[in-house]
Amino acid sequence: MSRLFAPAPTPRLLAAYLVIGLVGSVILIYLLHRGLGPRGRRWLIAVVTFVAGLFYGLEFYYPVHNRKNFLTDWIEPVSVMIAVIGAFTVGLGIYSLCQVHGRNVARRRPGWPNSLAFFVAFLAMLVFGLWSHYTPVGEPAPKVLPWQNGVYEVLFNGLFAPLQTATFSLLAFYIASAAYRAFRMRTAEAALMMIAAFIVMLGQVPVGAWITSGIPLTSPWAFFRLETLGEWILNWLNMPAQRGIVFGIAVGALAMSLRVWLSLERGTFFSEQR
């Protein structure tokens, strides 16, 4: 089995594998496309789905000896294959982006400079990212970086990371406006939820501890210090509820997984069987 997934020993053999694989895949897909009608395609999807699910399910549930069963050694190469196939779809995504933005630029649609900015950013990150990755720098923290690594540092640490952080920080403002607008004590449950929210919000910050700092830690009323009360709510109210939610979601996921594995969901994804 290990020889089946071992890397090709020579570049020539690797090239041969690639060509055979590519040509073989194209021929196989063409034959399947021409030979199978809609019913045949659905049958093929159902079989492949079942076999793929069976592989992982069987490997997990089949009894083991020394933490292994007859399928365990196949897990890693199969997972790598799936990751490689998934990586091909990145190309599809890039194609879609280039198609849409390319059309905007070519036809000078409103907002076309933004599409041009996409291409500039995409190419800059691609070129300098790959270039700096393949430029050896020697020690972990050199005092002087090669210029292409410097450009990559500026793009990454100077642009990309701060932009991500800035976007995330928008959430603080959105939370403030959403909380102000949505939190209304229309019912008793809403009031209870709001009180709990206030306690936990204040318990999580130093000002909450300061507000109730007058209650000595050793007094019988210490439970009512905001940080203690907040922790109590998280540990004794929130935690069992989270456990319950996990139970429910896990069972729902099991049922959904069974339906997908046995292709019982076919009618909802694709056109119904006739």
């Binding site: 979601i249 069972v251 729902g252 996921a253 049922a255 019982l264 909802t268």
Partner: peptide, 27 residues
């Protein structure tokens, strides 16, 4: 939560899907 996984059964009302939904509630 669970209502999300019930969506396909709820929207299509196919017997297979509603049966699975009831089964998961029993579990």
């Amino acid at each position: 939560g669970d209502e999300f996984y019930a969506a396909s059964a709820y929207l299509t009302r196919e017997p297979t899907l509603t049966g699975s939904l009831v089964g998961q509630d029993i579990v």
